[in-house]
Structures are given as C-alpha cells and as structure tokens.
Design a binder for these strands. Structure first.
Lengths: 209, 209
DNA sequence: TGTACATCAGTGAACGCGCGTTCACTGATGTAC
DNA sequence: TGTACATCAGTGAACGCGCGTTCACTGATGTAC
C-alpha cells in the first residue's frame, strides 16, 4: 500500500515552465556556449522570476546535467533506430544512417552536444545517470562496429568510427565548414558525400555477408 | 629613412611578462575552458596587478586572438614538418606522422585547441590574422590529401582526413577516452593503433606510387 | 657632460554590472477529517 | 458540506563576489640637443 501525501500532489509532469526552462537553456548553450547559460538569463527568456528556476533545479549544474542526460538519451535512440536497419538494409546503408544520426544530432542540438563531451561540466559522482546515459550511447557505437566488422570488430575500429562521426559533428557545428561551404545547403550536400565516401571505404574493406 | 621615436624604445620583444601572461592564459584555458580565462585571474597567476595585462593586450579578446594565432601557426608548422616526410618516407608514414602531429598538438595545447575552432570566440573581422593562420593550417591538410590521394584528391576526401584527426583530437582531450583507457599510457597506445589502422585503410585503397 | 622630456612598464583605486544563491514570504490548490 | 492544513509554484528583496574596464598616477629608462 502506498501512503498518499497530505497536501497538494505534484502537478502533471508535462509541466510548462520546467520544459520551457530546458528549452531556453538549450538555446543559450547553442548561442554562446556554457558561459552563456546563467540562471538569470534562462529565467529572463522564459519570462519568470530569476528565482523560479530554483524551484525545478537545485542549482545551475542540475540544469546542465539534465540537458546532458536528455542529449545522450536522444543520441542513443537515434543510433538505435539507425542500427536497426542492419536487419533489412545491408551494412553500408546502416553505416550511412548511423553516421547521419550522430551528426544530425550534433546539428540539431549543438550547444548540448558540446557539453556532453566535457565531463568537467557536470560532476560524474554527483550525477550517475549522466554516465549511464553516455554509456548507452556508446554501446550503440559498439553495436555499429559489430555490424560493420562482425567478428573482426575491435576497440581500434570502434574508435575510428567514433572519431569520424564525432569529428564531422564538431566541424559541422563549430563553423569550420562555413569557410569552404558558405550555405547550409552546400554543407549538407558535402556532409552526405563525406559520409557516403567514408562508408564506401569501410565496406570495401569488409567481406560481404 | 626611418624616423626614430623620441623617447624610450620598446623593450626586447622577448618580454617576460607578456610571455608569462600568454603561458598562464593557456593553462587557464586548459583547466576550465574559455570561461576560466579572466583578465584578473591571469594577472593573479602571473603575479602582477590586474591592470598590467592591459598594457600588453587591449582587452580580453586580444589575448584569445593571440593564443589562437599562435595555435594555428604551431599546428601548421607541425603538419608541414610531417608532410615533408613524403619526400623520403612514403605515403603511409607521412599520413601517420601528420595524424599524430594534429592530435599531439591538441593534446599539448588542449585549451587553445578548443577555442581555435570556435569562431565566435574572437571576431574574425577584428582579427584578420586569425583567419590567415587558420587558412595556413588548413592548407597543410589539403597538401596531405594531395600526398595521399594524388590527382584523386577532393574536398570530400580532405574532410574525411580532417574529421578523423579532429575527432581523435577532441576525444583524446575531452576525457571521452578516459572511460575505456584510464591511464595516459593506454590512451597513447590506443591512439597509435587507431592512427596506424586508419592510415592502413586509406593507403590500401590508394594505388602505390 | 648635462638636462629636458618622451616613452615604457607598470601600480592602485574605483566604477558599475551580472551572476549564483539565500531568505522570507504568498496566493492557489488540493486532501483529510 | 466545512474547515484546517500541507504542499505547490512561484514572487521579491537582498547578499556578497568576481569580473571587465576606465582613470589617474609613478618611477625608471633612454634619446635629443
């Protein structure tokens, strides 16, 4: 039996302000990096007192941790969906899909992507679920390595895959590609060619199923 | 003919304090990212008044720009040295050397490496030499692509190379590798295997000279 | 050789601002009896 | 049906701090004449 608390129960977890705060936090991170994410600016944009965020998040680091957990979970899901193609689509198509899943995630949430891989941003001992979410995303990369290389899979090959998609994600969102490819359309096209070519190279070296 | 200024001439450009300030700035960047680099903290560590840095750098952004220019110049030099091996050492050895040059630079100056690829950190119109230094580093990467692929070189293949070494650099310095490879020795060994394997893959697909 | 003076390489005090966080409070809402 | 009360979802004022930057100053050093 569960004992009901006496007072008012917690509101619907699809709470407005909490979600709004996380949303504006993502925006701030994307616009100016971790330094631009302050409790007061988040509150300002969300249209509430600078005290209100403390109702949902004990302190600034909790917001960052929440975003990172959401980020890794989102990334892991995207990779999982892509990896599932292996059942029907063949190795190369799966690899292409997974690579795009990784890079598209980076592009869709550039600010969060950048802090996800900076462990100094949120204390690992304080937020165990951050590490857990990170591990589940990493597991999908290892699954992809298995798909591509089968029993020849190794940590070395996994790192090659990871470095490639991670590097692409970084270069796409940090503006490094903007010099060569000024418009978003050109960048997207270039990205597709790079992913396609990379996948071809790997599959070329892998014995057919 | 040059007109000598009347007063005291500028001191030896191998000035102590200026170099000291840049050095501690690199440390601060490495320790806590761009947010940790403040004029006052730099001064504090360098053992001078918080006003002294203004004597050498007009404002905070000038320090960042100076570090980025130095960084790109250093990176370009390392890549150039590696690329020169092409004359005597063969394609694969050159590729391995260049990849290590890139990643080693990231490891040696992690803080600077991170801001080099964040153009929002220093205004491009204000610091033209930042773009120029960046371009010279990028040119070495294109030279490497030429070395590896010859006339089959393309922007797509250049981006594959770049993304790989950039991704490796990021993952090595942001702590992502620390989970799988807890000690620096293990990480270095892993890095060597990854670079070696990646170079083998690329050269395998390239006709011998 | 002397001296006026321009410049160098800083020092030291002070400004206004945005920040994270603490504290005390408040009206609304729901539950227990 | 009434009412006491616990909790929710905030508000509003205030704190102390570190920051970037401006301003006014200072002793040392070198050059011009």
């Amino acid at each position: 039996m569960t004992i009901k608390p006496r007072g008012r129960p917690k509101a619907d977890p699809t709470r407005d302000l909490r979600q709004e705060l996380l949303l504006t936090s993502r925006e701030l991170l994307a616009e100016g990096g971790p330094g631009a994410l302050s409790m007061r600016e988040v509150a300002r944009r969300a249209g509430c007192t600078h005290q209100a965020p403390y109702h949902y998040f004990k302190d600034r680091e909790v917001i960052l941790a929440a975003l990172v957990v959401e980020g890794f979970t989102d990334l892991a899901e995207r990779l999982q969906v892509a990896n599932r193609l292996a059942g029907t689509q063949g190795i190369k198509a799966t690899l292409v899909a997974s690579a795009h899943a990784y890079v598209d995630f980076a592009i869709s949430q550039p600010g969060v992507f950048q802090i996800m891989f900076r462990p100094d941003m949120c204390d690992a001992t304080r937020f165990p679920d951050v590490q857990q979410a990170g591990a589940s995303a990493h597991a999908e990369l290892e699954k992809l390595t298995q798909i591509v290389y089968g029993e020849r899979a190794s940590p070395t090959l996994a790192s090659i895959l990871w470095a490639q998609v991670h590097g692409l994600g970084c270069l796409m969102i940090d503006g490094s590609m903007a010099a060569q490819f000024p418009t978003e359309q050109l960048r997207t096209r270039h990205l597709q060619e790079v992913v396609e070519q990379f996948a071809s190279m790997l599959v070329f070296m892998t014995p057919a199923k």
